[in-house]
Amino acid sequence: ATNIVGKVKWYNSTKNAGFIEQDNGGKDVFVHKSAVDAAGLHSLEEGQDVIFDLEEKQGKAYAVNLRIK
Results as ranks from 00 to 15, higher is better:
29 V>L: 03
19 F>T: 05
43 S>V: 11
53 D>Q: 04
54 L>C: 08
11 Y>E: 00
48 Q>Y: 06
29 V>A: 04
47 G>Y: 04
57 K>N: 10
47 G>I: 02
48 Q>D: 09
3 N>C: 10
52 F>I: 03
62 Y>K: 07
54 L>H: 02
49 D>V: 15
23 D>P: 15
48 Q>W: 14
6 G>M: 02
45 E>A: 12
64 V>I: 11
7 K>M: 05
24 N>W: 09
58 Q>F: 13
3 N>S: 08
19 F>A: 07
3 N>P: 04
11 Y>Q: 01
39 A>L: 07
45 E>I: 14
28 D>T: 09
27 K>Q: 11
47 G>L: 04
14 T>H: 13
19 F>L: 11
13 S>D: 09
7 K>Y: 05
68 I>C: 07
18 G>Q: 01
33 K>E: 04
23 D>V: 15
26 G>C: 09
1 A>Q: 13
42 H>Q: 12
67 R>D: 02
1 A>D: 09
16 N>A: 12
16 N>P: 03
59 G>R: 05
34 S>V: 08
62 Y>N: 06
24 N>L: 09
54 L>V: 13
55 E>F: 14
25 G>M: 07
5 V>K: 15
56 E>C: 14
32 H>Y: 08
47 G>P: 00
36 V>N: 02
48 Q>K: 05
54 L>A: 03
56 E>H: 13
46 E>Q: 15
22 Q>I: 13
40 G>W: 05
49 D>R: 15
64 V>A: 06
27 K>C: 10
11 Y>P: 00
65 N>L: 02
12 N>D: 12
45 E>C: 14
21 E>G: 11
33 K>C: 08
40 G>M: 07
27 K>G: 11
67 R>A: 03
38 A>E: 08
57 K>M: 10
17 A>E: 10
1 A>P: 10
37 D>I: 15
39 A>H: 02
57 K>E: 08
61 A>H: 12
26 G>I: 06
51 I>Y: 08
6 G>N: 01
52 F>Q: 00
35 A>M: 06
28 D>R: 10
45 E>S: 12
66 L>H: 01
2 T>A: 09
37 D>G: 07
29 V>R: 02
43 S>K: 12
62 Y>I: 07
22 Q>N: 07
61 A>W: 14
63 A>T: 02
58 Q>Y: 14
63 A>R: 01
52 F>R: 00
68 I>N: 05
31 V>A: 02
8 V>P: 00
48 Q>F: 06
56 E>L: 13
20 I>R: 01
33 K>W: 10
61 A>R: 14
7 K>C: 07
45 E>F: 15
58 Q>M: 13
25 G>F: 07
52 F>Y: 06
28 D>Q: 09
38 A>T: 07
61 A>D: 07
59 G>I: 02
48 Q>P: 01
26 G>F: 08
29 V>T: 04
53 D>Y: 02
10 W>F: 09
15 K>S: 09
6 G>K: 01
